[in-house]
Each structure stands twice: as C-alpha cells, then as structure tokens.
Simulated scan of single mutants.
Amino acid sequence: MDTKVLLELLCNGNGVSGYEHNLQDAIKSAFNRYTNDIKVDKLGNIIAFKKGVSNSDNIRIMLAAHIDEIGLMVKDIEENGFIRFTNIGGIDPRTILGQEVIVHGKEDLFGVIGSKPPHLQEASEHDKAIKMEDMIIDIGYSKEKVHSLINIGDTITIRRSLTNLQGSRVTAKALDDRAGVAVIYETMKELNKMKHEADVYFVSTVQEEVGMAGAIVSTFGINPDIGIAVDVGFGATPELSKSDSLELGKGPGITLGGNIHPGLRKKLTEVAAEYNIPFQMEITPGLTGTDARAMIMTKEGIPSLVLSIPLRYMHTSVEVVDMVDIKHSAKLLAFFIASISNENLEGLLCY
C-alpha cells in the first residue's frame, strides 16, 4: 500500500483516545507485508516485529507513533434532542464552534456544533470565547430518537477528510500522530531493502493524548535498548519564532533537550549528514510531551530519541504536513537503525 493511501485511510477513520480499535485492521493489514509478526496487546497497542540479521543477542529498537486522536464525548442529551459534550484530549474550544461532526452512536450520525447567535449575546459576551459547555451538537432528531441511537459516553469526531493542498502538502484531522504511523510504515519499507542487526519493534501506541498509557505498557513489555518516539512538532507559521518551530518540507526535527540521550542524538545527526538527509533541530529543554516521556522512565530507563514531523495548526481539524518530510523521516530512521550494531551500541549509550 502506498504510504499516502494509508495515511488517508487512517486520518479519515475514527480512533479517539481509548477507542483506537476502529483502526486496528487497517494498520495490521498494512504492516503485515513488511514485518515478521504482529500482535495486539491488552491495552490495544499494535506491535509489529521485524527480525534483525544478527544471530547473537539482538539489539532491540522500538519505534513508537501514537494512533489515537483528540475528540469529543457525549455527556448529556437535552429535552429538545440537543447533545451536550466534553473533550477527550487537548482541544481549544475556539476551533470547534461551527464544525461538522460525526457522533459515533449505534450508527454514525452527522451533526453540527452550534451556540447562541451573536445577535442575542449580552454585550459582556462579545469579546469572550464561547466555552465548550455553552455549545451543543444538533443532529436534527428529537430527544426520543437521539436516545434510541446515542448513549452517554459515545465518541464524536470532526467530520473531515484528508485533502491535498498545493505541492506535496496535505491537510486533515488526526495527522497528530497518524503522520507518525505513516513514517514508521515507510521505515518498514525502507528497511526491507537493507540489512540491519537490530530487531525492530514498530508500535502504534494508544492513549497518548490522555497520558501515554500505551507507550508505558508497550515499552515495559518490549524493554528496548533504544526507544524512538515519532511524533509531530510545531510547523512554522508567521506568528511563531524560528526557535520554536520547524519549517515544512525541510526535513524532520531532531529533538535536543534534557530527555534526549545525547549519544544517540549525535549519532542520528551524523547519519543524516552522511546520507544527505535534510533535518532541523528542535529545542525541547524539558518534557517532550511525547511517548518518549514514557520510554525514558520505563524499568531502569530507556535511552530515547524524538523525531518530529513539522505540522501546522496542531490539535485542530486542519492540521498540515508535507509528504516530503514523511519520506525524509523514514529514510533517516532506516539508515539510523541499519547503523546500530552490537559492536557500537555500548559506545553510543555511554555518557
């Protein structure tokens, strides 16, 4: 399957944190061709294993990209059939007013998010953002009909399909972090052309947006020698400073900061330079906010890296990435994995 086709399939799907099982079949079907074994653990993480060529005790490298997306959840049904809702994961209420949504009840139901018209607002309300608790979802049915199709706790996603922008850029919901899943899929295909000593575990993690539970348990089970979180970074837009953002189309961001293993980060930049793969530096002095946070604190601690795909408008329904960055990210990861051996691992991990 073409990587962009997989990305479109995943972004158009429904997989709010805790409900990622809706995407399992698509991921397993795609990963199956390029790996030796696939399993789904008790929390729902999809773990695809690719065997290395070494006959000795193999190095274990784990790539993690989270499959869950932010979304909404039904919390009440009004007398007139309107649906009250809350958020799952970090959502700015200002980005959802007026959006079309799909309520995932007994069947998928189209609706719209509305609120009090500006004409009827008090003067004191004009300069204030509308709170989520003051919004409703209207699917057009009576209370009785709504109750027959929808339960409290049903999830809701923004109705949006992946769309091509100009050039090699695309816009969609849930590119955070299904773009990362696309990267690890493309990395599988690149590694299929190479020899690598390390055993590689490609993990589509769950529940990253609500506490990284998937990465915690999958890292504990795999106990890798090296962990790499593949996630998204803040794509450059006019209001962002260069030091806080990444340019689209100029390669992935290699994260530099306190949570990142310095020896592995240095090796990753050397590999990028050796194979003329463009990259940028992403400065994250504290917590990375990615699955790497879970990796570094698992068992005795896993030496970890973060590779970030530049992404604009994070945590909205119109996130934007450049497919060129996905290709460059995969090439960099594949060559990095191929460069790791039993002979050089200890030196790389030494402080």
Rank of each mutant, 00 (worst) to 15 (best):
N342M: 06
M297Y: 03
D322K: 05
G301W: 03
T269F: 05
I337P: 14
A330D: 02
L256A: 12
E274M: 11
I302E: 07
A330N: 06
K331C: 03
P278N: 11
T255G: 07
S308G: 09
F279M: 10
A330H: 05
F335H: 15
P310K: 11
T269P: 11
V318T: 13
L305V: 08
K331D: 09
L311H: 04
S308Y: 09
P303E: 05
P285G: 01
T284W: 00
M314L: 15
H328V: 02
T290R: 07
M297W: 00
E270Q: 15
R312D: 09
V271N: 12
S317N: 15
N259H: 09
S341M: 04
L332F: 14
M323H: 02
P262L: 08
I309F: 10
A294W: 02
Q280M: 09
H261P: 13
G289K: 02
I283E: 03
N276G: 10
Y275P: 11
G263T: 13
A294Y: 02
I309M: 08
A292H: 08
G289M: 01
L333T: 12
A330K: 08
L264I: 12
M281K: 12
D325M: 07
M281N: 10
A273Q: 14
M295K: 08
V318M: 13
P310C: 08
F336L: 15
G289I: 00
P303S: 09
P262T: 08
R293Y: 01
M323R: 01
Y313P: 13
P285A: 00
P310T: 11
E274F: 01
R265E: 14
L287M: 01
G257M: 03
D325A: 05
K331I: 01
S339V: 13
T255V: 15
P285I: 00
P285T: 02
A330V: 04
M295G: 13
I340A: 14
R312K: 15
A272H: 14
G301S: 07
G258E: 02
S329T: 11
A294H: 06
P262H: 09
N276Y: 02
A338C: 11
S341W: 00
H315A: 05
K331W: 03
S317T: 13
M314I: 14
Y275L: 05
N342K: 15
I326G: 06
V321S: 01
S308E: 13
V306T: 15
A273C: 09
M297L: 05
E319P: 12
S339T: 13
D291L: 05
Q280H: 12
G257A: 06
S329P: 12
D291I: 05
L311D: 04
V324R: 14
R293H: 04
E300P: 10
S341A: 12
I326C: 03
I340Y: 11
A330F: 04
A294D: 04
A334V: 10
L256G: 02
E300R: 11
T255H: 03
I296F: 06
K267C: 12
M295Y: 07
T255K: 04
I283L: 06
L287E: 02
A334P: 12
K267P: 12
G286A: 01
K267W: 10
G289V: 00
G286V: 00
S341D: 00
G263W: 08
L333H: 11
D325K: 06
A292M: 07
M314S: 09
V318C: 10
L264M: 12
F335V: 02
A338T: 07
T288I: 02
V306K: 11
